[in-house]
Design a protein around this nucleic acid. Structure first.
Lengths: 225, 225
DNA sequence: CGGCTCCAGAATTTCGAAATTAATGCGAGG
DNA sequence: CCTCGCATTAATTTCGAAATTCTGGAGCCG
């Protein structure tokens, strides 16, 4: 269920995983230039695996590759976010309806289990709520992946993962993360309920609202700058 | 309109373009192992730009990268093709309806112009029809890109290009290419007509049939092996 | 006889530096 | 004072070889 194998055997793959995380988390700021020498020192690797990792990331649009001018972290802006939002709404509702139509009993079990696991975890560990519980975030992702995985389409899966990565970059702009644990818990519960009832239309409706709700907070930030 | 800049300034980008073409054309057979030394000789480049190009291609699923075990051209099979087909149907009809809803007059002009250019070109140059006219194929691609480009969504564009590449690999299995110039000409004409009339529903219907028609011939070949 | 280990040989991966190209700063001319 | 061109500096790109890992087969043990 994890996103990357913990221990890839090649340096290039390990650097790729770390670079991806750092771009998504915002550790490498949006739009910033990626000085190869700095990165080489930062990750303690040679030129070759570093460039290989950067080129792989450039194919996912998380970084831009400019011939003879190096690499740059992809910028974040409202126009881009609206495209991610629209693509996510369309793709995820489609995948959800497919899953509900085609998914078997084992899939339903996975969804229910993932929801139970998510429901058990607290969203915040610290009292002041400045930091999101990273376990929660991972389980949240796993839950949503599970709901969409009833009808296996590796191409759609790939698109979905890509969109999720881009979406995560925007969500990580919200610091501190907004407090809406009750609302989210309810969304997830109702979504699971609709899936178990095999009510595709209802599930898609809930999911669409869930996505739009998350988008609202992000768009406020993007418009304010 | 061309797919790749004729003269990328880095070796890595040029090798990437050539590798991509060779994978799509089938010059590098589906499923075959990509021996690095052989490729290095074939394209007359060093190890570094070659690996960078291969990693970029691996992110598009045209080649598979296996850590410590090199690279392999992605295999072709019926299950995979069905996913490409389904994804193409959904994505292209969506993009077409978006374009018809949002596209401006300049876009309509581009569509009409692209269709006129396509209609002028013959599908085959040789009398025996063993070889497709490459100009026609390029213009065919340009025409379809044009129809879908009324509402600019770079993410959807990227997905669409990816699907087109994968589709082209399957289409290139058909040797000699099937003779159906009249049918295709009619499809394109009717599609253009529906677009000019801003009839999204009709255009989507024609496009869906157009895609399925092309899929039928491919699936026959895939099932026979 | 089947399966396991170990040993070349072959392939992939990685490094460090050389070659090439872009960016910078300085001085001359308009 | 600003602009253009040139030399210098800095960065990216590329190569060739070293280091590491995989592969296939021979030999050995159960």
């Amino acid at each position: 269920m994890a996103d990357e194998p913990e221990e890839s055997s090649t340096l290039a793959s390990r650097v790729y995983a770390r670079l991806r995380q750092d771009v998504i988390a915002g550790t490498l700021p949006p739009g910033s230039k990626l000085a190869l020498d700095k990165l080489r020192a930062r990750y303690a690797v040679g030129m070759t695996p570093l460039r290989e990792a950067l080129y792989r990331l450039s194919a996912t649009l998380l970084v831009e590759a400019h011939d003879q001018r190096g690499f740059r972290v992809a910028a974040l802006n409202l126009a881009h976010f609206e495209q991610v939002l629209s693509a996510r709404e369309r793709l995820e509702t489609l995948m959800l309806e497919d899953s509900i139509r085609d998914g078997d009993a084992a899939w339903l079990d996975r969804v229910v289990a993932a929801h139970a696991a998510l429901d058990r975890l607290p969203m915040y560990t610290t009292a002041d709520a400045t930091a999101l519980n990273l376990d929660w975030r991972q389980q949240h992702q796993d839950f949503h992946y599970a709901t969409l995985s009833g009808s296996r389409h590796f191409l759609q899966d790939m698109f979905h993962r890509l969109l999720w990565d881009h979406w995560s970059r925007y969500r990580n702009l919200l610091r501190p993360p907004p407090l809406q644990e009750a609302v989210l818990k309810l969304d997830h519960a109702r979504l699971t309920e609709a899936i178990v009832a095999r009510d595709g239309e209802m599930a898609a409706l809930i999911l669409r609202r869930h996505i739009r709700h998350g988008a609202a907070a992000i768009m406020t930030v993007l418009k304010s700058t």
